[in-house]
Simulated assay, not measured.
Amino acid sequence: MTAFFDTPGLLPAFVSTNRSRVVGAGADPFEYDRVTGALQDLLDWPQALERAGRGHLARAVEAETAGHHLSAAAGYRTAAAWLHCATVLPHPDRDALARAEATADEAMGRALALTEPDAARIEGHGFVGWLRFPSGVVRPPIVVIVPGMDSSKEEFHDVADALLPRGVAVAAVDGPGQGLLATRSTPEPAYEKVMGALLDLLGARDDLDQDRVGVIGLSLGGFYAAVAAAREPRVRATATVSGPSSLDWSQLPPFVTETLTQRCGSADAARAFATQVRLDPLAATIPGPILVVDGGLDHIPGATNGAPLAQAAPHARYLLVPHGDHLLGNARPDWLPATTDWLATQLGADLPRP
């Protein structure tokens, strides 16, 4: 077994550390405690969380069959969150990861079909996701939601749900090595390539304002977002949440090194990727405004948080939430409304008409 799974006291520590993350993704906290409380070994995490997700999926199908579309949509979204969160550790069963992510993607699609029929599938070189529109807004600005190392487009419902009523369209995507693409591709540190391909696709539409593009990146997605802000001129405003300014492979904990090794395909490729996660050469070149959000309790060995980015970027604002953990799942009221307000303001978003 790998070094990560040999860590003493791993199961209770992993369950505790990931509680705010899974609950933030859409799981009920009491159900999380029941599901994880029954675990005897962390290797059983994927099966247990996938089973919970499939239970919600079955109930959503029953609700849809009975014509209860709101309940069905909520159930599909909850199922998608559980199914994705089943994948958030470097488990040796890669087929299970692919199966869970594919079912999560299908569940989110079914939810949107019931409640947001104008939502569109978007797919291109290096990305796949959903484009969602605010109601009552003509040619809205758009914000791209960029997930992190082991995240996916299904994890950040709350971010999208906060942006939409502020008059902003949302493109939530899986990029290389993420979500639906986790077993089909490897992470891309030159994320401006992914962002450029995505914005090229969106630029062909006449229902979006391509001159008002923002991006929010979470965890490693914060690094990707900052890279895109520096190198993709169409990005007008950027927010990062728990994003690293740099990684030091020699200091990173086994969870991170083993996850990157899986996602990159080998330890050598993962080390090479980690050496490219450095924002000091780029931060000063970011031309637009950037909001950097950190949690004061977010301490990952080998990962430098966002403060250096905020200090070096010429138009940066820094929001430190002292009691916030990684992704600040334990402190959403302290950053999510302010961050989505800030993005909407920077992009000149119009509030939806009643």
Rank of each mutant, 00 (worst) to 15 (best):
A204F: 05
A228I: 02
A13I: 03
E106F: 03
L309P: 01
G126Q: 01
T2H: 09
D93T: 08
A230Y: 11
A113R: 07
G217E: 03
H69D: 13
R132F: 05
D200K: 08
R278E: 15
G324W: 00
G175H: 06
P337R: 00
K153V: 09
A269P: 07
T238M: 07
T36H: 00
V128T: 15
R54L: 10
V144R: 09
V35P: 01
E116M: 01
E62T: 15
R54H: 12
G217C: 05
L11N: 09
H315V: 05
G124H: 13
T285C: 03
D209S: 10
G129P: 14
P244L: 03
A48N: 08
G295E: 08
Q251V: 11
G136A: 10
G179M: 01
V137A: 13
V213L: 05
P287N: 05
M149S: 14
R234D: 12
D207F: 13
A331E: 00
S242M: 03
T183M: 04
S246I: 10
P333N: 11
P301A: 13
A237M: 04
D350V: 03
A239M: 02
D28S: 10
D105E: 11
A113V: 02
I122A: 11
H56L: 01
R132N: 10
P90T: 15
A104P: 00
A73T: 12
E258G: 03
A96P: 02
A182D: 07
G329H: 06
L282W: 08
P333A: 10
G129F: 13
W45A: 00
P189W: 04
Q47I: 04
A119D: 11
R51T: 15
T78D: 12
A274D: 09
G324T: 04
H84A: 12
A107M: 04
R212Q: 12
V213C: 13
A74G: 14
W82D: 15
S266N: 11
H91T: 14
A13M: 08
Y32L: 02
V321L: 03
I300C: 12
L297W: 03
G148P: 10
V22R: 00
R231E: 14
W130G: 06
A272D: 15
A303D: 06
L220N: 08
G296L: 04
A197C: 08
V146A: 10
L10A: 09
G222Y: 02
T275V: 04
G148I: 03
W335M: 04
V256L: 12
L252W: 02
L10C: 07
E64I: 02
A197F: 01
T285Q: 12
R94F: 12
M149P: 00
V170S: 05
P289W: 00
L327N: 08
L181T: 11
P333E: 13
L112P: 04
G26Y: 07
H91W: 13
P354T: 13
R99Y: 07
G109N: 08
